[in-house]
Design a protein around this nucleic acid. Structure first.
Length: 466
DNA sequence: GATCCGACTTAGAAAGCGTCGT
DNA sequence: ACGACGCTTTCTAAGTCGGATC
């Protein structure tokens, strides 16, 4: 392996050659044939050996992740498909790989979608080579996910009144389930499975411990406020003050009674039993469906609230980003402040100052021309004035755009929009909004996103309702 | 019913790369 | 031609969840 530092000093020719090499690798290994269709493969390169970098306070951080040998890799190919030529080591010895023909026929009643897999040595878990998100298979799955979430719309009312009823149940188990489900629904918390000691200490809804919440009867002129403070997925901190219904507040008091900080808040509840209950309420319903449902609903609501039909495209895009941001906040999608944030922000401010100056000056020039015109009605001056006016307008538009960008940037400082855009927001909402407000899709989706959401771009109904 | 296993989605950071001003 | 900057792509860890197994 060549160090990145060294690579920087390579000549243009060397860099070009590397690029060509990578292209050749992509062409040879980056695609597969599925039902006769050529599909992009996602991660077709095996993970190189190195130090394991867990996130947060991970007990196995720094452990050596070993090199995976060809014999450890299982390839899943169709029966009768051509077995790939085994790679050879430096001595010309064949490095054999396990081939598994149609995994479904072995012991499964369903067909898996992975192309290859191996077992990793840190947690002993499987790693898979799968298709790219642009593939037909992944697109179909994505569509299915949103259809399940949309189905929830029809029964969410009943589910909500059911869990509110459960807050008064005689059975503690049902009260806990009712409160937990309320959190999952209202706050878009993750299910929160039990985890072993070998991973960072993070929690979701069902695994919340007493120490993760504080009850405030009053907090900033609100009543019955629950303060959440815990580390969620990827050790991202969830810290939120939430006013809740009195019954929920009282129940939490009961759940916490006679418990230590380290005890489970919902000691009579497991993700398994919760999901089992949910699946009885609606086919395909699980805890995570609520996240998808509430995220997409929030986007749609916010777009309706924030978009003004008379606005120009830039303000509309700002509105879109704000709606997207509301979802990211709901789902707690954070990022660390980019290293270059302060610098790029001050660059932007400088640009704004300069543009303001330019606007001012151009307007002055317009005035001068107007004065001239009063004195002598020359054709030349009329033309000049028109030109100046147009220039002033152009500059003002540019200024406006810069100011919008600055607002957007500041509001986005510590919030990651990408995750919700990619995983939680039904793309058909976005596409319909773009159509309705005559915003080019390119303004809200980049190339990758457009490729991934090709299925929705094709459908493109203007009156789509999630 | 608890725990394990396998397959899949979701996640933030790092690396890569094209563009733009100098 | 060159480096800074910002967006895109890659990387792989960390979740969810259903079914098998203990």
């Amino acid at each position: 392996m060549v160090k990145a530092e060294e690579r920087k000093n390579w000549t243009k020719e060397q860099k070009l050659e590397l690029k060509k090499e990578n292209e050749a690798i992509l062409n040879e290994y980056g695609y597969c044939l599925m039902d006769g269709h050529k599909q992009r493969v996602g991660n077709f390169k095996i993970e190189p050996p190195g130090l394991f970098r867990g996130r947060g306070d991970h007990p196995k951080q720094g452990k050596f992740k070993k090199r995976i040998l060809p014999k450890e890799v299982i390839i899943n190919i169709g029966e009768g498909a051509k077995v790939p030529e085994p790679l050879k080591d430096t001595n010309g010895k064949r490095l054999l790989t396990t081939i598994r023909y149609g995994v479904s026929s072995f012991y499964k009643t369903y067909v898996v979608s992975w192309l290859a897999c191996w077992v990793e040595n840190i947690q002993g878990s499987y790693k898979y080579v799968m298709l790219n998100p642009t593939s037909r298979l992944k697109g179909e799955k994505d569509w299915q996910k949103y259809e399940t979430a949309r189905k929830l719309k029809d029964c969410v009312k009943t589910i909500r009144s059911d869990y509110e009823r459960d807050w008064k149940s005689k059975e503690m188990r049902l009260r806990q389930r009712g409160v937990a489900l309320y959190f999952i629904d209202k706050l878009a918390l993750r299910a929160g499975h039990e985890k072993d000691e070998e991973t960072a200490d993070t929690v979701g809804c069902c695994s919340l411990r007493v120490e993760h919440i504080k009850l405030h009867e009053e907090w900033e002129d609100k009543e019955n406020v629950v303060e959440f403070d815990f580390l969620g997925k990827d050790s991202v901190r969830y810290w939120n003050f939430v006013p809740v219904e009195k019954k929920v507040f009282k129940n939490l008091n009961i759940f916490m009674k006679a418990k230590q900080g380290g005890d489970d808040l919902f000691d009579r509840l497991s993700t398994t039993s919760l999901n089992k209950y949910l699946s009885e309420l609606m086919d395909g319903l699980t805890a995570k469906v609520f996240r998808t449902y509430n995220a997409s609903m929030t986007l749609q609501d916010q777009l309706n609230k924030l978009t003004e039909s008379e606005e120009n495209v830039n303000s509309k895009v700002l509105s879109y980003n704000r709606a997207n941001r509301a979802v990211a906040i709901l789902c707690n999608h954070q990022r660390s402040v980019p290293k270059t944030f302060d610098k790029s922000m001050s660059n932007l401010q400088n640009k704004i100052t300069e543009k303001k100056k330019a606007v001012k000056e151009t307007k002055k020039e317009v005035k001068v021309l107007k004065k001239q015109l009063k004195e002598s009605k020359e054709d030349k001056t009329i033309k000049q004035l028109e030109k100046k006016k147009a220039q002033a307008q152009r500059l003002e538009d540019q200024l406006f755009k810069l100011e919008v960008t600055a607002t957007d940037k500041e509001e986005n400082k510590e919030i990651a929009l990408g995750t919700s855009k990619l995983n939680y927001l039904d793309p058909r909402i976005t596409v319909a909004w773009c159509k309705k407000h005559e915003v080019p899709v390119e303004k809200v989706y980049n190339k990758t996103q457009r490729e991934k959401f090709a299925w929705a771009l094709d459908m493109a109904e203007e009156d789509f309702v999630f």
